[in-house]
Design a protein around this nucleic acid. Sequence first.
DNA 1: CAGGATCCGGGTAGATACTG
DNA 2: CAGTATCTACCCGGATCCTG
Lengths: 122, 122
Amino acid sequence: MDEILLKKYADVENCPVRNVLDRFGDKWSTLVLLVLDDVAVIRFNEIHKMIDSISQKMLAVTLKSLEADGLIIRKQYPEIPPRVEYTLSERGASLIPHIKSLVQWANANFEDITKSRAAYKK
Amino acid sequence: MDEILLKKYADVENCPVRNVLDRFGDKWSTLVLLVLDDVAVIRFNEIHKMIDSISQKMLAVTLKSLEADGLIIRKQYPEIPPRVEYTLSERGASLIPHIKSLVQWANANFEDITKSRAAYKK
DNA sequence: CAGGATCCGGGTAGATACTG
DNA sequence: CAGTATCTACCCGGATCCTG
């Protein structure tokens, strides 16, 4: 690993690793990004339907923080009833391949890890 | 994205995405893996020195769960004072490239994201 | 040295109700 | 429809103390 990263192990505030982890670490961001990548354009309630285990509140919070980080774009139409559409930004799209490679690893190793975990308990 | 993943959005328990995310999502696992990759063999207190912001407790917890998942190997020597060495397992090593690609993305985008976040607040 | 046990506080997620 | 507001409960993480 780079020297740069090594030195930053201790520097929690400005550590890019920590920073990106805090973004991924949260329960839903990654899943939302994958959904957006999957459907291109989507509305609030549609996301909620696709990830039905997320609460309305957490979906709102997640979308807001993703928007704040410039990973997704929120487009609001001045209509009644209101309509809001979410899409991936360029920055968000550039992140997708990395997430997907992780997901593929997860899929490939999921079963083995589950077995290890079960065996460990004994 | 694959159909398979799509269907699994709703299936929290058996979803590989969720599962791998829960492993990464925790505050320290990824950082510990990076350290292990960096040094090959390392003892408890050495990790603690490198990541000094982690508490003793969380380091122990993190190492245990990584071991349970078969991502690291714990080797204990029957000596006094006790000595325990940690190394990456093959499975753990196979994960490293994926993490690193994510870290690189984080480094490349860290500054811009920080700016976006600051601008959003106004 | 490498942790285990315990206690404790704060933040975060969930449920529910409400609104422009 | 697309959220916000509030309240609560739980869990996580830190600090401290202890031990083989």
